[in-house]
Design a protein around this nucleic acid. Structure first.
Length: 751
DNA sequence: AGCCTTCACGCC
DNA sequence: GCGTGAAGGCTA
């Protein structure tokens, strides 16, 4: 820290993080005229080799006369982050082993960063041309009558409107009168109207919020949870909770009332949701409940909208932020409470670039801010449950549904030996019966499209993505074969592309095919489908949900999407068509995921006083994840799963890290992974200790989105050892040009 | 020779 | 990440 306030003539030195894959900060001299602007959190422009790059001030220190290059310019009006936010960035950078500059860049709203422009001779405007304040044009009628008469026609209508209203914005005029810039320009030239620029916020939620939502009366368990949260908030210390509540147990109301208490204390609140695009109801409920500003941050916003929401938060105009994972960096001051809703969701993890987990960071940020952190879910992660058992988290239970209904009955249908039928006779009969009673059915399959792959019965040719090497999924609606990783698509062939014969067959069931099957077998039913293909357009979710709510849909077919967050109040029968597609994903958490999915789907059933039924078609009817989910036996499942994890050495009994290599040249990635593995073994030998090195596997390289990838998985009993090894390898191993090394700490996705 | 691609290096 | 400059290879 330097001495403030400083003499204006004095120069200072700033330590700067640049958003590049470099670990060390760089120092620059701030020339005297710029010195007053030097402060932690400021964005600036510095010379970097032959380039100019943006950087972030980490520290301001006294000039010690070292030979340094000069800062070129400070950007923005003031700092973009506070020292306490910097502390969070530093923690993330060191924990996730990712360069600080890139962490800061990821934490700040997209669009404010101006990346380097090549070479010399660049214009000043170019550099400051990043996303900034948005303005709109406002037209105003000029008082007093100019000498000429106003032009007739559209211009006259515009002038009359402006005279009546006093002033109007350009977009509004365009909305009312159509394209009218020519006329406006003419009116300005003639002196009838004048124009001004006005600073505006882009409003990401156009939906008007009507009415006011009042706190609901809580049941006994909700009250107990709320009382506990209030006590913790009053204590003003970091306190982490698991709020475990079955679907429909009223978790949201507990959040709302706890947050109300937090706001009364003058503190702010952050609510993380797995995918905000899917939860507009939640946002509107918050907006109706709280009159203070509610800001929204998620990837669906344009850069400009996001920047505006970020500025509102920074200026203290919004005390509540609802957002997806990146909102963990929302610039809220005086943070009192962080809610992580559906904490078990995998989407809290960022899987590319700066690989962080917002659910984990919520605990860290909460600790730094002295806030309460509430992890809410019906089906906690196994690791979360283990933390509860170890006394690290306090568990608040909401075991009852608000409506008092018992949970639906669930049953497994053994489909072994009944290959080929999409709906087992048993399930088909139940659907028929449910239709006859005028009740609604949900059929779940975790795979969109018509069929997963196309093959030739003559030559065995299979259609694959040239970028990703995965099979192309056939989409009947578009009559194309599409890659689900990179969206590569080819028109559906009628003859085998390998041998030209006509004997091509579709294998692997998808929701489109289920829909076709259901329409054929239940011709009188009103059928709808909800997956990424039918909800791609804006408002797609709402349309399907409304039809279900208004009982215009008898049978809804859906993917993952239907299990997450949405309420389907009328569904009395749920059919899970092939639980194997989740159970057999090559990931050590597949059993956990299956248990969570089935439990969540069971929670979706029931209407009025009918608790509903759930039928699960399975080839593994005795699997423990299914058995415990069907029995509603949480403790049984967690017990079994923890035993399995302990036996196999997976979290929470071991820590994992993956070193991910990627590049466009297969041979370079291959060679680098061998070198990296050798270096790892070397490091482990001299003092690394008990870290298990898995890989590189002698398998073909995985190829995704045109990049070849390989990862080396590391397992260790304690995190410190693992961290030390990864840190050392990253310091001493420079991947060759064209290959990128990224670290993925702890919650690892196996490929 | 001239020109192009490949690769190790360093950036305050 | 990206610009640099040295090294090797191909055409004339």
């Amino acid at each position: 820290m330097s001495s403030f306030p400083m003499n204006e003539r004095q120069t200072v030195i700033v330590h700067v993080a640049v958003p590049l894959p470099l670990d060390a900060p760089f120092s620059y001299r701030v020339p005297a005229p710029l010195a007053p602007a030097a402060a932690v959190g400021r964005r600036l422009l510095v010379p970097f080799g032959r380039r100019k790059v943006t950087g972030y001030v980490l520290e301001v220190v006294d000039d010690d006369g070292r030979e340094l290059r000069d800062v070129l310019e400070f950007l923005d009006d003031g700092p973009l982050f506070t020292p306490s936010e910097l502390a969070l960035y530093r923690w993330a950078s060191s924990y996730y082993l990712h360069p600080l500059g890139e962490v800061i860049k990821a934490a700040l709203p997209a669009g404010i960063n101006v990346q380097s422009r090549r070479g010399r001779g660049l214009e000043e405007d170019e550099l400051t041309g990043g996303r900034s304040v948005k303005t709109e044009r406002v037209y105003r009628a000029v008082a007093g009558v100019p000498e000429t008469a106003p032009p007739p026609g559209k211009a006259w209508v515009l002038l009359a409107h402006l005279t009546e209203r006093g002033q109007e914005s350009a977009p509004e005029l365009r909305r009312l009168f159509g394209e009218c810039s020519v006329q406006l320009r003419r009116l300005r030239e003639l002196g009838f109207v004048e124009m001004a620029e006005r600073e505006i916020y882009r409003d990401p939620f156009r939906m008007e919020t009507v009415g006011h939502d009042c706190p609901l009366v809580l049941n006994g368990r909700q009250t107990a949870a709320l009382v506990r949260l209030r006590t913790a908030l009053d204590a003003g210390r970091f306190t982490p909770f698991l709020l475990r509540g079955v679907t429909g147990s009223g978790k949201t109301e507990v959040y709302l009332q706890a947050i109300a208490h937090c706001l009364e204390q003058g503190r702010s609140a952050l609510v993380l949701v797995p995918e905000i695009a899917l939860t507009p109801q939640l946002v509107s409920r918050f907006r109706r409940r709280f009159r203070c500003g509610v800001a929204v941050l998620h990837s669906g916003l344009s850069d400009g909208e996001r920047f505006d929401e970020w500025r509102r938060i920074r200026r203290g105009e919004a005390a509540i932020v609802i957002g997806a994972r990146s909102a963990i960096f929302a610039p809220l001051a005086e943070l009192g409470m962080i809610v992580v809703d559906e904490e078990h969701e995998g989407s809290y993890k960022q899987g590319e670039g700066f690989r962080y987990n917002a659910r984990d960071m919520a605990l860290v940020r909460g600790k730094m801010a002295g806030a309460c952190v509430v992890l809410g879910t019906a089906t906690p992660q196994v690791t979360t449950w283990h933390a509860v058992a170890g006394g690290k988290l306090e568990c608040l239970d909401l075991p009852e549904r608000v409506n008092g209904l018992p949970l639906p009955s669930a049953e497994i249908i053994d489909v072994r030996g009944a290959r080929g039928s999409i709906l087992h006779a048993r399930l088909a009969a139940e659907v028929e019966e449910n239709l006859a009673r005028g009740e609604q059915t949900l059929l779940f399959l975790n795979r969109r499209g018509f069929s997963t792959w196309l093959t030739c019965e003559e030559c065995g040719h299979v259609l694959r993505c040239p970028n990703c090497q995965v099979t192309l999924t056939y989409h009947q609606g578009r009559n194309r074969h599409i890659c689900h990783y990179c969206d590569y698509a080819v028109p559906a062939p009628s003859l085998c592309p390998g041998c030209g014969c006509g004997r091509i067959i579709h294998l692997g069931l998808g929701t489109e095919q289920v829909e076709a099957y259901v329409r054929e077998h239940f011709p009188h039913a009103r059928v709808d489908r909800m997956d990424r293909d039918t909800t791609a357009r804006r408002g797609g979710h709402a349309r399907i949900l409304r039809k279900v709510a208004e009982r215009q849909t008898d049978i809804l077919i859906g993917t993952q999407m239907v299990a997450k967050g949405h309420d389907f109040p009328g569904i009395t029968l749920v059919g899970i068509l092939s639980v194997e597609s989740t159970l057999n994903i090559p990931d050590y958490r597949s059993a956990e995921r299956t248990f969570q999915l089935v439990t969540q789907l069971i929670g979706r059933a029931g209407r009025g006083d009918d608790p509903g039924r759930v039928l699960i078609q399975s080839l593994n009817p005795d699997h423990y994840a299914l058995a415990h989910a069907v029995a509603g036996d949480m403790d049984g499942f967690y017990g079994a799963e923890l035993a399995f994890r302990q036996e196999t050495g997976y979290p929470p009994f071991a820590h994992l890290a993956a070193l991910c290599l990627s590049g466009t040249a297969a041979s370079a990635v291959e060679r680098t992974s061998e070198l990296l593995a050798a270096r790892l073994r070397e490091l482990r030998r001299d003092g690394g200790g008990r870290v298990e090195i898995l890989g590189p596997a002698p398998a073909p390289l995985a190829k995704l989105r045109g990049r070849f990838r390989r990862q080396i998985l590391l397992k260790a009993a304690d995190r410190t050892t693992l961290h030390r090894l990864v840190r050392r390898v990253r310091e001493s191993f420079q991947p060759p040009a064209g290959v990128r090394l990224q670290v993925d700490m702890d919650p690892v996705d196996l490929m």
